[in-house]
């Protein structure tokens, strides 16, 4: 477990000499433990609710509603999901493909762009920085962007539409640029004297030196792709191209659709489908990889936030 904290490991409490009246500290600790415990429980309990609901027998849900402790335990929902996984497997496939391709391409382009903007000898670095940055201040709004993608790029119902619009993000470029600016110039200078070109310097020197920033930004990009449903909502109607989150969105809002999806995946028409617990099981299946990876990747996000959060 790599749970993270950015504080130093010696809180001030420990530094105070014993022997004085410490009522204030005891009181503060009491407030702290109660308040933080409460917040932590509030943050985690909805997930437990979903898990327990997905494990509850359907008839119990219909009769008594969702409960934190299942009154009647059942694996029906998961059994159904794993017996007829057709659509979900496809959605997983789409999400994984989009996440892998999008993250690899996006991260490479982010790094390459940031490197050029971080080069202090590049005459137009400020002009280009402003060119990128201005897009965060002003935009044409949803409609022209939407029409551009649908009519002019003709990307509707193509996998590319799930990748392209999220490929680059100005915020990530800025964070990466500020990281790369801190790499000593002497390193690239000596390579230049040895006759290395700019692109080679970037590939062979800058990328290895930027690993921490690449890991952080890469995870941010990957999380963005994994959790994306918006581009699918706008541009995808083909069921074979639905990413996981959008598939979940469709199923949550549409019990008939869920029934149809299970049937098209091979379930029998007359089958009694546990819709409520199935919705919850589907939520768990769609979030599972993130919940599993979370303890290991959390630390990189904390790093990223503290590198570039305030100085935008």
């Amino acid at each position: 477990m790599s749970a993270t904290t950015t504080t130093n490991d010696k809180p001030i409490i420990a530094q105070r000499g014993a022997g004085k009246k410490q009522y204030d500290r005891v009181l503060l600790s009491a407030i702290g433990y109660v308040f933080i415990t409460l917040l932590a429980i509030l943050c985690i309990i909805p997930f437990l609710m979903i898990v327990s609901s997905s494990l509850t027998e359907e008839s119990t849900i219909v009769e008594n509603g969702f409960q934190l402790i299942p009154a009647a335990f059942s694996l029906d929902a998961y059994e159904l999901l794993f017996k007829y996984p057709g659509q979900i497997l496809k959605a997983y496939g789409v999400t994984i493909a989009v996440t892998v391709i999008g993250t690899a391409t996006g991260l490479f382009l982010t790094a390459m762009t940031s490197y050029v903007l971080a080069r202090k000898d590049f005459k137009w670095r400020n002009s280009f920085s402003f060119f990128f940055f201005f897009t965060t201040l002003f935009s044409g709004g949803l409609v022209p962007w939407y029409l551009m993608i649908i009519n002019y790029l003709d990307l509707k119902d193509r996998m590319l539409v799930l990748i392209l619009p999220m490929l680059l993000n100005v915020f990530y470029i800025i964070v990466m640029k500020s990281f790369m600016s801190s790499i000593p110039e002497a390193i690239t200078e000596s390579a230049k004297i040895d006759g290395a070109g700019d692109f080679r310097i970037f590939m062979q020197l800058i990328i290895p030196l930027s690993k921490p920033a690449l890991a952080t930004i890469g995870l941010f990009i990957a999380l963005g792709y994994w959790n994306d449903w918006y581009n699918a909502l706008l541009f995808v109607s083909n069921e074979n191209l639905m990413p996981l989150q959008y598939y979940l969105y469709k199923m949550l809002g549409n019990m008939d659709g869920m029934r149809r999806a299970m049937i098209s995946s091979g379930a029998v028409v007359t089958m009694n489908i546990p819709t409520e617990s199935l919705k919850m099981a589907m939520t768990i299946v769609a979030t599972g990889p993130i919940l599993l990876a979370y303890p290991f990747i959390q630390r990189y996000f904390v790093q990223g936030l503290t590198i570039g959060a305030v100085k935008g």
């Binding site: 749970a3 993270t4 504080t7």
Partner: peptide, 26 residues
């Protein structure tokens, strides 16, 4: 920072950060 111990801080922070990672659909 001020009131709780190191272990408690790490664990509770892990819990509190979790909602940031899930999609709005979830």
């Amino acid at each position: 920072f001020e009131a709780v111990g190191k272990w408690f801080r790490k664990i509770s922070q892990t819990f509190m950060f979790l909602p940031y990672f899930i999609s709005w659909v979830v």
